[in-house]
Nucleic acid binder design. Structure first.
Ligand code: FES
Ligand code: FES
Lengths: 135, 135
DNA sequence: ACAAATGATACTAATTTAGTATCATTACGT
DNA sequence: ACGTAATGATACTAAATTAGTATCATTTGT
């Protein structure tokens, strides 16, 4: 049971690296070298972040990626959603689609409550909370 | 992202069913019919619960499974651990095994804190909290 | 002996996650 | 204009995890 997939974890590292640079930017090549993440995988993930407007990119020579916003405004929850879909701990596995029982299901209520706590925490956590400032 | 796997979910249903019976017991055949879970899968999972002393079993004609303890004493956390391994949301994916960085890693600290909340909730939740009494 | 139950174990299938490969497009510098 | 350095898009393969099946052995009540 793991809260993060590798992609999300890598994304945090990459964003953290950029956050510590004066211009909040980097190229895929730089990040590959610095973080030792397989390059094509990293690139895919950076593109995904760009699509979701967490990064901005510039093509061509001298191009690269930069944070699209203040790191204080990048939520952990947002990153997880990008790579892992909506924040739900709570799917009902029974009888496929919408479970008729869902409203009265005691288990769902319990998990729903835990879910809510987790989501609140994740929303409250910003990129700046995930990375050491120093070094 | 899902807190439970199907096995855990099924296990809760099966245990819940037994909990509502006067003798806290049932056979695999009964449970299959009542819960519509694939039988061999269910059987495997019941055996697992027996191994971990959540259930007791009796072989042979007239045999079956029964709760090994008071449902108040069966924790949600325990069930999850049986089917999904130790409760950790927190593996470090970097550089394989024990991460030298782990102690200072801001992200791990954050997740660790969330993890702790979740685990506390799961430990506090008993089988009786997961199942409707009535019906 | 037979039937009804679980125990043990090994296998297959489906799904999700991780990672690779390729080619198209854009922009800078000469 | 051209070459090079970058990202965009897309399709594919591989590995890991989860779900599910199949089979045979063992025990127990009648
Ligand atoms: S049985 Fe579907 S939500 Fe609990
Ligand atoms: S880098 Fe290993 S724990 Fe954060």
């Amino acid at each position: 049971m793991n809260l993060l997939t590798r992609q999300t974890d890598y994304a945090v590292r990459a964003l953290g690296y950029m956050m510590r640079r004066p211009e909040n930017n980097a190229t895929a090549a730089e990040l590959t070298a610095a973080l030792k993440i397989p390059r094509p995988f990293l690139r895919k993930l950076l593109q995904e972040l760009t699509k979701h407007h967490v990064l901005r990119s510039r093509k061509g020579a001298g191009g690269g990626f930069e944070l699209a916003r203040d790191p204080e405004k990048i939520r952990f929850s947002e990153l997880i959603e990008i790579f892992q879909g909506p924040l739900r701990l709570n799917h009902c596995t029974f009888r496929k689609k919408p479970c008729p029982n869902k409203k009265v299901c005691a288990m769902r209520r319990r998990i729903g409550c835990i879910e809510e706590m987790v989501i609140n925490q994740l929303r409250a956590t910003k990129l700046t909370d995930l990375v050491q400032k120093g070094e």
